[in-house]
Amino acid sequence: MLSRTDFEILFRSHYSSLCSYANGFLKDVDASEEVVQEVMFKLWAGRETLVIESSMKGYLFRAVRNSCMNTFKHLKIRDEYKVYHETRGMEDQRSLEDEMIFTELEQKVRLAIDNLPLERRKVFIMSRYDGLTYNQIAHKLDISVKTVENQMGKALKSLREELADYLPWVVLFLFDILRK
C-alpha cells in the first residue's frame, strides 16, 4: 500500500504537469489546482482498496481528465469543449497515454521551468505562453517593467545554462525550419 512518503514523492513529481494538463481543458489555473488536489486526495483516501490497472501516472492523468470533463458538464460549457475536442480531433482519441508521455527533453525543459523561483516562473510563462508584453506582465503582477525585464533575463539565463547540454543538438535542424 502507498506510504505517506511514496505519496509525497508522487505528488511532488506530478503536481505541476497534472495542473498544466488540467489547465489545457479548463483554462483556469485556480480551478486546475483544485481539480488536481481533489484527485490526489481521493487517491490517498482510497489507497487501501484502489486497484490501478495500468500505471499510477496513467491513472492520475485519466482521473484529472475525467474531473475536468465533469466540471465542464457542470458549468455547461460542454459546447465549447466539443469544439476543442473536434479541433484536436483524432489525435485526442488515439491514446491518452500518448499525450502524457513526454519526451525526455520535454521533461527536462518542464522540470527546469518548474525549478525557477515562483515570480520568475510567472513572468516567463506569461511571456512565453500567454504572449503578454512586459508592460502587461508588470501590470498583472503589480511589479515594475524593469523587474519583469530582470526576471525574464534571469529566467532565460538559468534555463539556457541548465539545459545547455541538451540544446545544441536541436538547434542544428530547427535552424532550417526557422529560416524557411
Partner: peptide, 13 residues
C-alpha cells in the same frame, strides 16, 4: 523553440 513545444503549456503553481 523547445519551450514553445510544450503542450499543454506549463502553469505557475
Amino acid at each position: 523553440l523547445e519551450t514553445g513545444r510544450l503542450v499543454p503549456p506549463p502553469v505557475p503553481v
